Simulated scan of single mutants.
Amino acid sequence: MDEIFGKIGTAQTLSQKIERRIEEAIRQKKLLVGTKLPSERELCEMFAVSRTALREALRRLSARGLIQIKKGSGMFVSELKIEDAIESLNLYYDLSFDSDLISQIIEVRRVFEPEIARIAASNRTDEDLTALNKNITDLADCDPDNTQLEADIINKFHLNVAKATGNKVMIISMEPIYSLLPRMRNLIYANVDGEKDFTIKAHRAIFEAIRDKNGEQAYQEMAGQIDRTLEIYTQYLK
């Protein structure tokens, strides 16, 4: 481990250089998931730095989820999970939520979701179809006064379309966006009559295209639904 924990010197911010050195080792897989790091005392000696600088670097690495500090056991390289990446984006979108973000989200959905539906039509499994069909049934059966539950079900439908692609990158990219759909729907559709009926019909059309492995039709149906969202957003909020 000498090449990883060699002396740094005293130039610039020591804690940042320590953090960068350990992060690079993790990125380059010189330190694998589960690897136990040397003790604080050993790291101070290897880096030739003070304990204060080291602890600040370790604190930031821990906050970013790159290492896990277990009291009484030591420090270990963490396993980065999809949920961690999604949670960070969820926080960003929540803090940035406004009418401008809604407009940008709709633009992103218009670019990506039709293609996601096309890929889902090729890769979907029977389990995917079962989940999508249940979402539509749940939406149809939902109490019309329970707009929050309706929005949650719509969120699940679009997320399940993304999951049907079998592409983890698509899920990571789109799930935080879908998490905003309940808030967007409550804001945009609060006073739009007949929107639930339209949404159910649109979801059924998307489902049927995916079920029939008709990628082009799935693309068109998804694009049509998002165009409708853009139309209503432009009419009511701009």
Rank of each mutant, 00 (worst) to 15 (best):
R55N: 14
I119R: 13
E19I: 02
G224P: 03
L230Y: 15
N146Q: 02
P176M: 00
I119E: 12
A218E: 01
R204S: 11
K213T: 08
S62I: 10
Q220D: 06
D126L: 05
G215Y: 04
A140R: 12
E56Y: 07
D128E: 00
I119G: 08
R211P: 04
A48T: 09
I18W: 05
A85V: 13
L129C: 10
G166Y: 00
V33D: 00
Q235D: 10
R59Y: 14
V111G: 03
I154N: 14
S15K: 02
I116C: 03
R124C: 08
V111C: 04
M184S: 04
L80S: 13
D141R: 08
F157R: 11
L187F: 14
R41L: 14
L14S: 07
R21F: 01
K81Y: 12
N133I: 09
R124E: 05
T125E: 01
Q220I: 13
A48F: 04
I200M: 03
R185C: 08
R211W: 04
D143M: 00
R211C: 01
R204G: 11
I154Q: 14
E24L: 01
L101M: 06
M170P: 08
K163E: 06
R27L: 09
H203I: 10
G6T: 15
L37S: 02
Q225T: 11
T147L: 04
V169Y: 13
L139W: 07
Q148C: 05
L180D: 03
E3R: 11
T13L: 12
E56G: 02
E79D: 02
L61C: 13
I8M: 02
A209P: 02
A131R: 15
L149Y: 12
I226M: 02
S96C: 12
E175D: 05
Y93S: 00
C44Y: 06
I226G: 00
Y189L: 04
M174K: 05
S62Q: 15
N186D: 04
